[in-house]
């Protein structure tokens, strides 16, 4: 059993910027490890779904029998944090899905993919996130989605230019932007604290 101060947090490592999340989680005091298989998923106390291509990650998750185990653990309360593509995968509904594109779900929201535009429109901006002290975080938005609408249970944590870019519902956290690409680990710190707050009952 790991000491509760260093929770074991996995990063879904099918595709995307996994290494940056592992480094950010380690900096936030977690024991971070990549997760590609169901048995690896069963051994973590929290999970980050990284940025990447949401269609690719969703396809690989289905192909390798990860989609159902992911849904099951998220449903049963596993703390999860999705950035960009990860936010799309945590949405109960995608506004404009590719045919057959599935999500894990967990947050009652509708997301619009690539809502801020293509790569030429990708940008950086300061973002005030409710629950994160010490001033705005550096938001790196890359072909980023935004949240079109949220359900009654979903808490809006941040907006940019009138669009929702960070949300939380219970143990699930999601941002349109990529804190893992900055040296600012406060979002990962917030998530590590969510994992620490969980009773230590992990399926092994």
């Amino acid at each position: 059993m790991t000491a509760p101060t260093h929770p074991v947090i996995g990063v879904l490592a099918l595709q995307g910027d996994v290494r940056e999340h592992l480094a950010a989680l380690a900096a936030a005091g977690a024991a971070a490890r990549p997760v590609r298989r169901p048995d690896e998923l069963a051994a973590v106390e929290g999970l980050v779904i990284p940025g990447g291509e949401s269609t690719t990650i969703s396809k690989l998750a289905s192909l390798f029998g990860m989609m159902e185990p992911l849904r099951e653990r998220v449903r049963s309360g596993l703390p999860v944090y999705g950035t960009c593509a990860g936010m799309i995968l945590l949405a109960d509904k995608i506004l404009d899905p590719r045919s057959g594109q599935e999500t894990i779900g967990g947050i009652e929201m509708i997301v619009r993919r690539n809502a801020f535009g293509r790569q030429n429109e990708s940008f950086e901006a300061a973002v005030e996130v409710s629950g994160v002290d010490g001033g705005p975080v550096e938001g790196v938005f890359i072909r980023a989605p935004w949240v079109e609408s949220v359900g009654a249970q979903t808490e809006v944590l941040a907006e940019h230019a009138g669009h929702i870019v960070a949300v939380r519902q219970g143990n699930a956290l999601a941002t349109s932007f990529h804190p893992e690409l900055t040296g600012d680990h406060r979002m990962h710190g917030l998530f590590a604290d969510m994992v620490r707050a969980m009773p230590v009952t992990r399926s092994r």
């Binding site: 995307g16 910027d17 996994v18 940025g51 291509e53 990529h178 690409l181």
Partner: peptide, 8 residues
């Protein structure tokens, strides 16, 4: 950062 998203 865009290229980082393509990794793997």
């Amino acid at each position: 950062g865009m290229a980082e998203q393509l990794k793997g």
